[in-house]
Write a protein that binds this DNA or RNA. Structure first.
Lengths: 186, 186
DNA sequence: GTCTATATAGTGATAGAC
DNA sequence: GTCTATCACTATATAGAC
Protein backbone atom coordinates (compact mmCIF):
# COMPACT_ATOMS: atom_id res chain seq x y z
CA UNK A 1 0.00 0.00 0.00
CA UNK A 2 1.42 3.33 -0.98
CA UNK A 3 -0.46 5.42 1.53
CA UNK A 4 -1.33 4.27 5.01
CA UNK A 5 -2.19 6.77 7.66
CA UNK A 6 0.69 8.90 6.48
CA UNK A 7 -1.36 10.85 3.99
CA UNK A 8 -1.89 13.68 6.41
CA UNK A 9 1.84 13.91 6.94
CA UNK A 10 2.50 13.79 3.21
CA UNK A 11 0.10 16.64 2.70
CA UNK A 12 1.97 18.68 5.27
CA UNK A 13 5.28 17.90 3.62
CA UNK A 14 4.18 18.99 0.19
CA UNK A 15 2.35 22.02 1.54
CA UNK A 16 5.45 23.17 3.38
CA UNK A 17 7.46 22.75 0.23
CA UNK A 18 5.07 24.84 -1.82
CA UNK A 19 4.28 27.44 0.83
CA UNK A 20 7.98 28.06 1.36
CA UNK A 21 8.62 28.15 -2.35
CA UNK A 22 5.88 30.43 -3.57
CA UNK A 23 3.99 31.58 -0.54
CA UNK A 24 0.75 30.50 1.03
CA UNK A 25 -1.57 32.68 -1.02
CA UNK A 26 -0.10 31.72 -4.33
CA UNK A 27 -0.27 28.04 -3.58
CA UNK A 28 -3.58 26.47 -4.48
CA UNK A 29 -5.05 23.30 -3.10
CA UNK A 30 -5.13 22.03 -6.64
CA UNK A 31 -1.34 22.24 -6.84
CA UNK A 32 -0.88 20.46 -3.55
CA UNK A 33 -3.24 17.73 -4.62
CA UNK A 34 -1.61 17.33 -8.01
CA UNK A 35 1.88 17.04 -6.61
CA UNK A 36 0.64 14.33 -4.27
CA UNK A 37 -1.31 12.72 -7.04
CA UNK A 38 -4.53 12.85 -5.12
CA UNK A 39 -7.56 15.03 -5.62
CA UNK A 40 -8.46 18.27 -3.98
CA UNK A 41 -11.36 16.62 -2.24
CA UNK A 42 -8.96 14.22 -0.59
CA UNK A 43 -7.27 17.12 1.14
CA UNK A 44 -10.56 18.13 2.62
CA UNK A 45 -10.83 14.78 4.27
CA UNK A 46 -7.67 15.43 6.25
CA UNK A 47 -7.93 19.18 6.80
CA UNK A 48 -11.07 21.16 7.20
CA UNK A 49 -9.68 24.22 5.40
CA UNK A 50 -6.57 25.47 3.70
CA UNK A 51 -5.79 27.48 6.80
CA UNK A 52 -5.86 24.31 8.85
CA UNK A 53 -2.93 23.00 6.85
CA UNK A 54 -1.02 26.17 7.57
CA UNK A 55 -1.77 26.00 11.27
CA UNK A 56 -0.73 22.37 11.51
CA UNK A 57 2.54 23.16 9.76
CA UNK A 58 3.19 26.10 11.96
CA UNK A 59 2.65 24.12 15.11
CA UNK A 60 4.77 21.13 14.22
CA UNK A 61 7.62 23.25 12.89
CA UNK A 62 7.55 25.59 15.85
CA UNK A 63 7.60 22.87 18.47
CA UNK A 64 11.41 22.71 18.81
CA UNK A 65 11.55 26.42 19.48
CA UNK A 66 8.81 26.15 22.06
CA UNK A 67 10.78 23.44 23.77
CA UNK A 68 13.85 25.62 23.75
CA UNK A 69 11.97 28.45 25.41
CA UNK A 70 10.61 26.02 27.99
CA UNK A 71 14.10 24.72 28.65
CA UNK A 72 15.34 28.26 29.12
CA UNK A 73 12.63 29.09 31.60
CA UNK A 74 13.71 26.21 33.83
CA UNK A 75 17.32 27.39 33.95
CA UNK A 76 18.89 29.94 36.27
CA UNK A 77 19.35 33.22 34.46
CA UNK A 78 23.12 33.20 34.41
CA UNK A 79 25.46 34.33 31.69
CA UNK A 80 26.40 30.74 31.01
CA UNK A 81 22.79 29.79 30.46
CA UNK A 82 22.37 32.64 28.00
CA UNK A 83 25.37 31.57 26.01
CA UNK A 84 24.07 28.05 25.98
CA UNK A 85 20.64 29.26 24.89
CA UNK A 86 22.17 31.01 21.91
CA UNK A 87 24.13 27.90 21.04
CA UNK A 88 21.01 25.78 21.16
CA UNK A 89 19.09 28.33 19.18
CA UNK A 90 21.75 28.36 16.54
CA UNK A 91 21.60 24.58 16.47
CA UNK A 92 17.83 24.54 16.26
CA UNK A 93 17.93 26.92 13.31
CA UNK A 94 19.92 24.46 11.27
CA UNK A 95 17.10 21.97 11.49
CA UNK A 96 14.35 24.56 11.36
CA UNK A 97 15.61 26.39 8.32
CA UNK A 98 12.41 25.39 6.58
CA UNK A 99 10.35 27.00 9.30
CA UNK A 100 12.05 30.33 9.00
CA UNK A 101 12.02 30.40 5.25
CA UNK A 102 8.39 29.50 5.49
CA UNK A 103 7.67 32.10 8.14
CA UNK A 104 9.36 34.82 6.22
CA UNK A 105 7.58 33.99 3.01
CA UNK A 106 4.22 34.00 4.66
CA UNK A 107 4.37 36.78 7.19
CA UNK A 108 1.39 38.58 5.80
CA UNK A 109 -0.81 35.53 6.05
CA UNK A 110 0.45 34.43 9.40
CA UNK A 111 -0.30 37.78 10.88
CA UNK A 112 -4.05 37.66 10.67
CA UNK A 113 -4.33 34.08 11.79
CA UNK A 114 -3.44 34.57 15.46
CA UNK A 115 -0.27 32.75 14.46
CA UNK A 116 1.42 36.09 14.21
CA UNK A 117 0.99 36.70 17.90
CA UNK A 118 2.17 33.22 18.68
CA UNK A 119 5.34 33.70 16.75
CA UNK A 120 6.06 37.17 18.05
CA UNK A 121 5.50 35.90 21.56
CA UNK A 122 7.98 33.14 20.98
CA UNK A 123 10.58 35.62 19.85
CA UNK A 124 9.89 37.95 22.72
CA UNK A 125 10.04 35.06 25.15
CA UNK A 126 13.43 34.22 23.76
CA UNK A 127 14.68 37.78 24.05
CA UNK A 128 13.25 37.94 27.56
CA UNK A 129 15.38 34.98 28.55
CA UNK A 130 18.43 36.82 27.31
CA UNK A 131 17.90 40.25 28.71
CA UNK A 132 18.03 41.87 32.08
CA UNK A 133 14.92 44.00 32.55
CA UNK A 134 16.90 46.52 34.54
CA UNK A 135 19.68 46.91 32.00
CA UNK A 136 20.25 50.01 29.97
CA UNK A 137 18.58 50.57 26.64
CA UNK A 138 21.84 49.72 24.96
CA UNK A 139 22.01 46.42 26.76
CA UNK A 140 18.47 45.58 25.73
CA UNK A 141 19.48 46.21 22.16
CA UNK A 142 22.57 44.04 22.57
CA UNK A 143 20.46 41.13 23.76
CA UNK A 144 17.96 41.39 20.95
CA UNK A 145 20.74 41.82 18.46
CA UNK A 146 22.50 38.74 19.80
CA UNK A 147 19.49 36.68 18.88
CA UNK A 148 18.93 38.26 15.50
CA UNK A 149 22.59 38.23 14.64
CA UNK A 150 22.26 34.51 14.28
CA UNK A 151 19.84 35.06 11.43
CA UNK A 152 21.65 38.03 9.95
CA UNK A 153 24.98 36.29 10.13
CA UNK A 154 23.87 33.16 8.37
CA UNK A 155 22.25 35.31 5.71
CA UNK A 156 25.31 37.45 5.18
CA UNK A 157 27.71 34.52 5.04
CA UNK A 158 25.58 32.57 2.59
CA UNK A 159 27.85 33.30 -0.34
CA UNK A 160 31.09 33.14 1.59
CA UNK A 161 33.71 30.53 1.14
CA UNK A 162 33.61 28.49 4.33
CA UNK A 163 32.07 25.32 5.69
CA UNK A 164 28.69 25.47 7.39
CA UNK A 165 30.38 24.54 10.65
CA UNK A 166 32.83 27.42 10.39
CA UNK A 167 30.02 29.80 9.61
CA UNK A 168 27.90 28.61 12.46
CA UNK A 169 30.82 28.98 14.81
CA UNK A 170 31.60 32.51 13.66
CA UNK A 171 27.99 33.56 14.01
CA UNK A 172 27.70 32.08 17.45
CA UNK A 173 30.89 33.80 18.54
CA UNK A 174 29.52 37.20 17.66
CA UNK A 175 26.16 36.49 19.25
CA UNK A 176 27.77 35.40 22.49
CA UNK A 177 30.06 38.43 22.49
CA UNK A 178 27.01 40.62 22.46
CA UNK A 179 25.47 38.81 25.39
CA UNK A 180 28.68 39.10 27.34
CA UNK A 181 28.83 42.81 26.59
CA UNK A 182 25.26 43.27 27.75
CA UNK A 183 26.02 41.35 30.89
CA UNK A 184 28.97 43.51 31.79
CA UNK A 185 26.88 46.60 31.31
CA UNK A 186 24.34 45.42 33.87
CA UNK B 1 -11.62 69.83 -7.96
CA UNK B 2 -11.03 66.96 -5.63
CA UNK B 3 -8.57 65.08 -7.80
CA UNK B 4 -6.13 66.67 -10.16
CA UNK B 5 -3.16 64.76 -11.41
CA UNK B 6 -2.68 63.37 -7.94
CA UNK B 7 -4.85 60.34 -8.50
CA UNK B 8 -1.89 58.17 -9.31
CA UNK B 9 -0.26 59.20 -6.06
CA UNK B 10 -3.43 58.61 -4.09
CA UNK B 11 -3.64 55.12 -5.51
CA UNK B 12 -0.10 54.45 -4.38
CA UNK B 13 -0.83 55.76 -0.92
CA UNK B 14 -3.86 53.59 -0.42
CA UNK B 15 -2.19 50.58 -1.96
CA UNK B 16 0.77 50.94 0.37
CA UNK B 17 -1.58 51.16 3.28
CA UNK B 18 -3.41 48.00 2.31
CA UNK B 19 -0.42 46.01 1.14
CA UNK B 20 1.37 46.73 4.39
CA UNK B 21 -1.72 45.94 6.37
CA UNK B 22 -2.89 42.69 4.84
CA UNK B 23 -0.38 41.79 2.18
CA UNK B 24 -0.31 42.14 -1.55
CA UNK B 25 -2.11 38.95 -2.43
CA UNK B 26 -4.95 39.47 -0.03
CA UNK B 27 -5.57 43.00 -1.20
CA UNK B 28 -7.87 43.17 -4.17
CA UNK B 29 -8.12 45.96 -6.67
CA UNK B 30 -11.74 46.27 -5.67
CA UNK B 31 -10.71 47.17 -2.12
CA UNK B 32 -8.24 49.76 -3.28
CA UNK B 33 -10.80 51.29 -5.58
CA UNK B 34 -13.48 51.32 -2.90
CA UNK B 35 -11.29 53.00 -0.34
CA UNK B 36 -10.48 55.69 -2.89
CA UNK B 37 -14.10 55.91 -3.92
CA UNK B 38 -13.28 55.27 -7.55
CA UNK B 39 -13.89 52.20 -9.70
CA UNK B 40 -11.58 49.34 -10.47
CA UNK B 41 -11.38 50.44 -14.07
CA UNK B 42 -10.04 53.79 -12.96
CA UNK B 43 -7.03 52.04 -11.49
CA UNK B 44 -6.32 50.52 -14.83
CA UNK B 45 -6.03 53.92 -16.35
CA UNK B 46 -3.11 54.74 -14.10
CA UNK B 47 -1.47 51.34 -13.79
CA UNK B 48 -1.36 48.65 -16.40
CA UNK B 49 -1.52 45.83 -13.87
CA UNK B 50 -1.73 45.19 -10.16
CA UNK B 51 1.94 44.32 -10.20
CA UNK B 52 2.69 47.72 -11.66
CA UNK B 53 1.32 49.33 -8.54
CA UNK B 54 3.60 47.18 -6.44
CA UNK B 55 6.61 48.01 -8.56
CA UNK B 56 5.94 51.73 -8.45
CA UNK B 57 5.62 51.59 -4.68
CA UNK B 58 8.75 49.61 -4.34
CA UNK B 59 10.73 52.02 -6.41
CA UNK B 60 9.58 55.22 -4.82
CA UNK B 61 9.97 53.86 -1.31
CA UNK B 62 13.36 52.41 -2.03
CA UNK B 63 14.80 55.53 -3.59
CA UNK B 64 16.21 57.00 -0.35
CA UNK B 65 18.08 53.80 0.31
CA UNK B 66 19.47 53.76 -3.19
CA UNK B 67 20.70 57.28 -2.68
CA UNK B 68 22.33 56.26 0.55
CA UNK B 69 24.18 53.45 -1.17
CA UNK B 70 25.28 55.84 -3.89
CA UNK B 71 26.49 58.28 -1.30
CA UNK B 72 28.45 55.53 0.41
CA UNK B 73 30.13 54.49 -2.79
CA UNK B 74 31.50 57.98 -3.28
CA UNK B 75 33.09 58.06 0.18
CA UNK B 76 36.49 56.75 1.24
CA UNK B 77 36.07 53.47 3.06
CA UNK B 78 37.14 54.65 6.46
CA UNK B 79 35.79 53.75 9.84
CA UNK B 80 34.31 57.21 10.17
CA UNK B 81 32.41 56.80 6.94
CA UNK B 82 31.00 53.49 8.08
CA UNK B 83 29.79 54.99 11.32
CA UNK B 84 28.22 57.81 9.37
CA UNK B 85 26.60 55.35 6.99
CA UNK B 86 24.96 53.57 9.88
CA UNK B 87 23.77 56.86 11.28
CA UNK B 88 22.24 57.84 7.98
CA UNK B 89 20.71 54.41 7.57
CA UNK B 90 19.16 54.66 10.98
CA UNK B 91 17.82 58.06 10.02
CA UNK B 92 16.47 56.81 6.72
CA UNK B 93 14.64 54.00 8.44
CA UNK B 94 12.59 56.43 10.46
CA UNK B 95 11.09 57.77 7.28
CA UNK B 96 11.03 54.45 5.48
CA UNK B 97 9.32 52.47 8.20
CA UNK B 98 6.48 51.92 5.80
CA UNK B 99 8.80 50.40 3.23
CA UNK B 100 10.14 47.83 5.59
CA UNK B 101 6.82 46.87 7.01
CA UNK B 102 5.63 46.58 3.46
CA UNK B 103 8.64 44.57 2.38
CA UNK B 104 8.28 42.15 5.21
CA UNK B 105 4.61 41.60 4.64
CA UNK B 106 5.10 40.86 0.98
CA UNK B 107 8.30 38.90 0.79
CA UNK B 108 6.75 35.99 -0.99
CA UNK B 109 5.34 38.17 -3.74
CA UNK B 110 8.37 40.33 -4.08
CA UNK B 111 10.56 37.33 -4.58
CA UNK B 112 9.25 36.28 -7.95
CA UNK B 113 8.99 39.75 -9.35
CA UNK B 114 12.68 40.49 -9.78
CA UNK B 115 12.11 42.93 -6.97
CA UNK B 116 13.50 40.35 -4.64
CA UNK B 117 16.86 40.53 -6.31
CA UNK B 118 16.76 44.30 -6.32
CA UNK B 119 16.15 44.44 -2.62
CA UNK B 120 18.68 41.79 -1.75
CA UNK B 121 21.24 43.59 -3.87
CA UNK B 122 20.56 46.81 -2.03
CA UNK B 123 21.13 45.13 1.27
CA UNK B 124 24.25 43.41 0.06
CA UNK B 125 25.53 46.67 -1.36
CA UNK B 126 25.04 48.23 2.03
CA UNK B 127 26.82 45.41 3.82
CA UNK B 128 29.58 45.60 1.26
CA UNK B 129 30.16 49.22 2.14
CA UNK B 130 30.56 48.22 5.74
CA UNK B 131 32.76 45.21 5.50
CA UNK B 132 36.34 44.51 4.69
CA UNK B 133 36.49 41.66 2.21
CA UNK B 134 39.68 40.38 3.75
CA UNK B 135 38.37 40.36 7.29
CA UNK B 136 37.70 37.21 9.28
CA UNK B 137 34.38 35.44 9.14
CA UNK B 138 33.58 36.88 12.54
CA UNK B 139 34.20 40.38 11.26
CA UNK B 140 31.94 39.80 8.30
CA UNK B 141 29.24 38.76 10.70
CA UNK B 142 29.83 41.84 12.85
CA UNK B 143 29.35 44.10 9.87
CA UNK B 144 26.16 42.44 8.73
CA UNK B 145 24.89 42.38 12.27
CA UNK B 146 25.65 46.07 12.66
CA UNK B 147 23.24 46.80 9.86
CA UNK B 148 20.55 44.41 11.00
CA UNK B 149 20.87 45.43 14.61
CA UNK B 150 19.25 48.68 13.62
CA UNK B 151 16.16 46.74 12.65
CA UNK B 152 16.31 44.28 15.49
CA UNK B 153 16.91 46.98 18.02
CA UNK B 154 14.00 49.12 16.99
CA UNK B 155 11.81 46.04 17.03
CA UNK B 156 12.95 44.95 20.47
CA UNK B 157 12.59 48.39 22.01
CA UNK B 158 9.13 48.94 20.61
CA UNK B 159 7.40 48.36 23.92
CA UNK B 160 10.05 49.99 26.05
CA UNK B 161 9.61 53.12 28.02
CA UNK B 162 11.79 55.69 26.26
CA UNK B 163 11.54 58.41 23.67
CA UNK B 164 12.09 57.57 20.02
CA UNK B 165 15.25 59.67 20.10
CA UNK B 166 16.68 57.74 23.03
CA UNK B 167 15.87 54.48 21.34
CA UNK B 168 17.44 55.54 18.08
CA UNK B 169 20.55 56.63 19.88
CA UNK B 170 20.86 53.38 21.81
CA UNK B 171 20.43 51.32 18.68
CA UNK B 172 22.97 53.36 16.77
CA UNK B 173 25.45 53.04 19.61
CA UNK B 174 25.34 49.27 19.46
CA UNK B 175 25.54 49.19 15.68
CA UNK B 176 28.58 51.43 15.65
CA UNK B 177 30.23 49.38 18.37
CA UNK B 178 29.98 46.36 16.13
CA UNK B 179 31.57 48.21 13.25
CA UNK B 180 34.39 49.40 15.44
CA UNK B 181 34.95 45.85 16.69
CA UNK B 182 35.07 44.55 13.13
CA UNK B 183 37.49 47.28 12.20
CA UNK B 184 39.87 46.41 15.00
CA UNK B 185 39.81 42.79 13.98
CA UNK B 186 40.96 43.63 10.46
C1' DG C 1 -10.27 7.16 2.34
C1' DT C 2 -10.69 8.77 -2.11
C1' DC C 3 -13.37 9.96 -6.03
C1' DT C 4 -16.56 13.06 -9.56
C1' DA C 5 -19.09 16.85 -10.12
C1' DT C 6 -20.51 21.12 -8.97
C1' DA C 7 -21.76 25.32 -6.24
C1' DT C 8 -20.46 29.85 -5.30
C1' DA C 9 -17.90 33.64 -5.34
C1' DG C 10 -14.10 36.53 -6.12
C1' DT C 11 -10.22 37.73 -8.95
C1' DG C 12 -7.50 40.57 -12.50
C1' DA C 13 -8.32 42.48 -16.72
C1' DT C 14 -10.58 44.52 -21.16
C1' DA C 15 -13.78 47.10 -24.35
C1' DG C 16 -16.04 50.88 -25.18
C1' DA C 17 -19.38 54.70 -23.73
C1' DC C 18 -19.33 59.25 -21.64
C1' DG D 1 -10.10 60.59 -16.44
C1' DT D 2 -13.74 57.91 -14.96
C1' DC D 3 -17.59 55.01 -15.83
C1' DT D 4 -20.59 50.36 -16.88
C1' DA D 5 -20.57 45.92 -18.20
C1' DT D 6 -18.55 41.87 -18.87
C1' DC D 7 -14.88 38.42 -19.76
C1' DA D 8 -12.19 34.42 -18.66
C1' DC D 9 -10.36 32.30 -15.03
C1' DT D 10 -9.26 30.31 -10.63
C1' DA D 11 -10.16 29.70 -6.04
C1' DT D 12 -12.12 27.32 -1.83
C1' DA D 13 -15.40 24.37 -0.48
C1' DT D 14 -19.31 20.86 -0.48
C1' DA D 15 -22.49 16.83 -1.62
C1' DG D 16 -22.72 12.47 -2.44
C1' DA D 17 -21.15 8.12 -5.06
C1' DC D 18 -17.84 4.35 -4.62
Amino acid sequence: MASRGDTRQRIQDVALELFAEKGYEKTSLREIAERLDVTKAALYYHFKTKEDILMALFQSLGAPLDELVEWGKRQPRTLEMKKELLARYSQALQGAAALFRFMQENQATIKDLSLGETFKNRMFAMVDLLRDEDGSLEDQVRCATALFSIHAGLFALKDMDATPEEKQKAVLTVAQELIVAAHHGA
